[in-house]
Design a protein around this nucleic acid. Sequence first.
DNA 1: CTTGACTTTGGAACTATTCTAATTCCATTT
DNA 2: AAATGGAATTAGAATAGTTCCAAAGTCAAG
Lengths: 143, 143
Amino acid sequence: MRELDAHARKALDEALSRQGLRPTVQRTHVFGVLLHKRDHPTADEVFVRAKEELPGISLATVYNCLETLVACHLVRQVNYEREPTRYCPNLAAHAHFHDAKSGRIYDVDLPPALLEKLRKVLPEGWNADTIELSFRGRKTKAS
Amino acid sequence: MRELDAHARKALDEALSRQGLRPTVQRTHVFGVLLHKRDHPTADEVFVRAKEELPGISLATVYNCLETLVACHLVRQVNYEREPTRYCPNLAAHAHFHDAKSGRIYDVDLPPALLEKLRKVLPEGWNADTIELSFRGRKTKAS
DNA sequence: CTTGACTTTGGAACTATTCTAATTCCATTT
DNA sequence: AAATGGAATTAGAATAGTTCCAAAGTCAAG
């Protein structure tokens, strides 16, 4: 992952400058790491991967960059039980499936119609900004 | 909350003995604390409440008891972001609503039909043992 | 009573994350 | 180009929720 593609580059620059922040090499690279392998890494894993190209980067910076990317809505946090937070650059509406066997997390598409139905379970006057749906179980088939 | 009612007592005794565990005074009391005020307390909050009647109880024991109750399926854990784990004695299928303003967590009933629909978003061969659904937002009306 | 498994306890240890203070970077102004 | 000042990065210390551990206590069964 030498470089961000033009689309990602633009999304990053715009989202950052919207909040008066600069696209530093660390931020850019951390974003690149997430886009490169979309497997929901932890901050530590991002740190290890980031160091391959930016040996001097610190863990604190990785945390800072991830926090910034989340604040800019370029990346989502995924929490599962008390495990370390994972990071996900998939911004489309989706749920997560935690495979008990491998520990891996998979994205699962959420049809907009279902999202609407979910919103409807809330009583009048309760407004949800975010909806999180996660499954835990076992995959018996790959796919 | 001097005593567990007969129903809770029975559920506790049966669930514990199913795993060869004993209904100690600490376990019984921690369960009682959760049933008494169903507001999703943290382990620390349970600790504080438990000490009112059992001044000698230790935090480690509260953690142990909660873990045991969860393992016996008498209590559910509720995690939200990286906040401390909360505990919930409501075993019926339900979602959680996190009120951003008050920080409080509310139970939201989940119709079985909706649960079925949720299960259907998973690809063939992916079997969910647990489904977690949580909302975050603001309540504009009490209710 | 003894035995042996289960429990509880206090405190130490662990770990993900946040904080802090010092340094570096970089765009802008001189 | 040098100086300025706010933003960003850094290493390491600090924090907080939770788990671990070894010792002491409890209890049912023999």
